[in-house]
Simulated scan of single mutants.
Amino acid sequence: MPKCSLRGATTYNLLEEKMSHRRSFAVTLTAALAAILAGCGDKTPSCADPATVSLVQQIYQQSFDKEHASMSPERQRRVQFTSKDTKVTVEAITTASTDEATGKNTCSAVLTTAMPKDAIPTDQRMLNHLRGTYEPQGAALDGNTVKGNVTYTVQRTEDSKEVLVKLTGHLPFMGLFHDLAMLRVFDKSEAEFDQMTGAAPKAVEAKTADSPPPEPAAVSQEAPSVAPPVASVAAPVVQPATAQAPAVVVATAPSVNVPHLCTGSETPIFACSTGKKRASVCSSHGGTVEQLVYRLAPSEGVPEMEYPSAGAAAAAAFQYGAQTAPDGGPVSFVSFDKGNYRYVVYAGEGGDSSRRGILVEQSGKRIAELRCQSNAMSSFSAAQFQKMGLSQDSRGLSLP
């Protein structure tokens, strides 16, 4: 029997579909790869044919690389630390149906990859959050193995007899992998991360010396996403170490009394109610280290999201930005990334409550927008964040 040779090209199509059970959007990435299998006749390869499976793996990898390339260089570096040592396999392959007229096979399978043990969160609440987010979408964590249900089709084109494979449903698997990869190192300082990767200390020192914190600049690039109104975000729910969640107290820093989610040892620099949600950004000092924490809670309830984990330096967890709003007023914002999600808390520097809110993006696409109502306060600026050592978020902010 002649051997089959493989060559082909990949195309991508982004589809946005509204989820009926939650007020957010899920982006399904559909990748199609056409390849010629020379010397194999006109029969469509089966779902489990080695050539078909190889194409599925290639499609996933190219989809991952495309998503990876859209991240900031630092995020790419941190995700690469985990992805370089993992391999995605295709298992549990079944043929769902075969169209006798076209020869098209519809297949289902499970993508799997083994994560490093230190990439699996030890906090049970964090694990529960990841499972609650991804299992309804078909991706799960089994021990240290990430699994994701996918569907693909395989058929020959009528004219060139090329074999066309289309893969769908792999975005949740990709998202869970990415979140675990980021959680593995998100609380590591640059020095700690360089030590993990074996980077030379001199390179780090040179980078610090040659790259002083950039000045805040007006940016008009498309802005990041905000805290989604539901727990569909791939960000772990981390409660403070104390047994009870922080009580709602009255901010004393601003002249207006605004309920916030900061503890007694923290200073609120942003707080607002969006109607059904409350959000706060709190500052504190951990010894000589400046710290920030973002919390989101229902209007009546304890925080359902907190970032980052206790003890993380503000400069390692957040970025900042400043730009001019369409009406000419200055706007400052602070942002952070969790997996495929970017959260942005913004505030006009003139005290205008209409210029306060939270945006959430998934893979660069806005999925949630929480605007502050009149009961709001903010007392931060780009200059303040720069003094904390935060790096500038070059992606900018697209105001609603």
Results as ranks from 00 to 15, higher is better:
Ser335Cys: 15
Gly339Val: 13
Ser353Arg: 13
Arg355Cys: 04
Glu361Asn: 12
Asp352Gln: 13
Glu361Asp: 07
Val344Tyr: 02
Val344Lys: 07
Asp337Asn: 15
Tyr341Ser: 11
Ser335Pro: 07
Gly364Ile: 05
Phe336His: 09
Tyr343Gln: 12
Ser353Lys: 13
Tyr343Thr: 12
Gly339Gln: 10
Gly350Ile: 08
Val345Lys: 03
Gly339Ala: 15
Tyr346Lys: 09
Asn340Asp: 11
Gly339Met: 07
Arg342Asn: 11
Ser363Phe: 06
Lys338Cys: 11
Val345Phe: 03
Ser335Arg: 13
Phe333Val: 07
Ser354Pro: 04
Glu349Asp: 15
Arg366Trp: 02
Val344Met: 08
Arg366Ala: 05
Gly351Thr: 13
Phe336Ile: 10
Arg342Ile: 13
Asp337Thr: 11
Gly364Tyr: 07
Val345Cys: 08
Ser332Ile: 06
Leu359Asp: 00
Tyr343Leu: 15
Gly351Asp: 06
Leu359Tyr: 04
Ile367Ser: 00
Arg355Lys: 14
Ser354Lys: 15
Val344Ile: 15
Lys365Trp: 12
Tyr346Asp: 01
Lys338Gln: 14
Val345Ile: 14
Asn340Lys: 14
Arg355Ala: 08
Ala347Lys: 05
Val345Met: 08
Arg356Ser: 01
Ser332Val: 06
Ala347Gln: 03
Val344Ala: 13
Asn340Gln: 15
Tyr341Met: 09
Arg356Thr: 01
Gly357Val: 01
Gly350His: 10
Glu349Val: 14
Val344Arg: 08
Val334Ile: 14
Ile358Arg: 03
Val345Thr: 09
Gly351Ser: 06
Gly339Pro: 08
Tyr346Ile: 02
Ile358Phe: 05
Tyr343Trp: 12
Val345Asn: 03
Ala347Arg: 04
Asp352His: 09
Ser332Arg: 04
Phe333Pro: 00
Val331Met: 03
Gly357Thr: 01
Val360Trp: 01
Ser353Phe: 08
Val331Phe: 02
Lys365Cys: 10
Phe333Met: 10
Ala347Cys: 13
Val360Phe: 04
Gly364Pro: 06
Ile358Ala: 03
Ile367Arg: 01
Gly351Val: 11
Val345Ser: 04
Lys338Ile: 12
Val331Thr: 09
Gln362Phe: 08
